[in-house]
Computed example of a mutant assay.
Amino acid sequence: MKDVREEYHADGLTEASLHDDPLEQARRWVDEAIEAALPLPNAMTLATVSADGQPSSRVVLLKGIEAGGFTFFTHYDSRKGEEIAVNPKVSFTMFWQPFDRQMIVIGEAHKVDQQESDSYFASRPYASQISAAISPQSRPASRAWLEDEVARLEQAFPSAPVPRPAQWGGYRIVAHEIQFWHGRPSRLHDRFRYQRQEDGSWLRERLAP
C-alpha cells in the first residue's frame, strides 16, 4: 500500500467559486455527481459515537438537503440509531473520486417527523419496504430466518404499500461546520471551512491542506 499513489489534476477551488450558503454549495456538488452518473453519488460515510466514547462508521445514502440539513433514513434501533439517541453529535464524509472532491459535515442528527418518514418509506420499492420491515438491523440473524421473515411479510402484504415499521425513519443532520476539499497537484489541495455563527450566518475561511 505504501506505493499506491494517485496525482490530482483538477483545476481546484477558489473562494469566488463557492456559494455563500454551504448547504447550497453541497447541493451543487451532489447534483453534479448525480448528473455525471458517478457510482452511488449520494453515498456518505456517517460516524456516530457511543455513550462510552467509541466511534463507529458506516456508509448510508443521503436522501435530501432541505429544512436546513441533510436527510437520511435508517432503523432507529440499529447501532447508529442507538448511538444517536444518547449522543446526537455526528459527522459524515462524501468523496467523489473522479472529481477529486470531498465534503465533510459536522453537526447534530435529529429524527424527522413521522409524516416525512411515512412519505419516503411509501416511495421505496416494494422489496425494499419488505426488507426494512423485517430486519433487526445490527443484530445477529441467520440468512434462513431473514428469508423466512420476508416470505411471511410478503404473504401478509402481497403488494405495496407495506406499513412503515415504527423503528424505521429519517434523521436530519443540522450542520454547524461544513468543509469542501478539492484535490490539487503535489498535494497542495484547496480546502474551505464554513462555521455557523450565533446569528445563523456562516464564517468561511481557507484551511491549509
Rank of each mutant, 00 (worst) to 15 (best):
D3Y: 15
V4W: 14
V4E: 13
E7S: 15
E7C: 09
Y8E: 04
Y8S: 11
A10W: 07
A10P: 00
A10Y: 10
D11W: 07
L13I: 01
L18N: 05
H19A: 12
D20E: 15
E24Y: 06
E24W: 05
A26D: 01
A26I: 02
R28M: 08
R28N: 14
W29F: 12
A33M: 02
E35Y: 05
E35I: 10
T45M: 06
L46A: 06
T48K: 04
S57P: 03
R58T: 08
L62A: 06
L62M: 10
G64S: 07
A67K: 15
A67I: 08
G68T: 07
Y76W: 11
S78P: 03
R79D: 06
R79M: 02
K80I: 01
G81D: 00
E82P: 00
E82V: 07
P88C: 07
V90Y: 01
S91I: 00
F92K: 02
P98L: 02
Q102A: 12
M103F: 10
I104M: 10
G107E: 00
K111W: 05
K111S: 06
K111N: 06
D113T: 13
S117G: 15
D118M: 04
D118A: 08
S119L: 12
R124P: 02
Y126T: 05
A127Q: 15
Q129E: 09
Q129V: 04
S131L: 06
Q137E: 04
S138Y: 00
P140G: 08
A141G: 10
S142F: 11
R143L: 07
W145D: 14
E147C: 01
D148Y: 10
E149R: 15
A151K: 15
E154P: 02
E154V: 02
Q155Y: 08
P158M: 09
A160S: 14
A160H: 11
P161C: 07
P163F: 11
Q167D: 14
G170H: 06
R172H: 05
A175M: 01
H176K: 09
I178N: 02
Q179A: 09
H182Q: 15
G183Y: 01
P185C: 03
P185Y: 03
S186I: 02
S186G: 07
R187Y: 08
L188E: 06
D190S: 10
F192P: 00
F192Y: 15
Y194F: 10
Q195V: 13
Q195L: 09
R196Q: 15
Q197F: 04
R204A: 03
R206G: 12
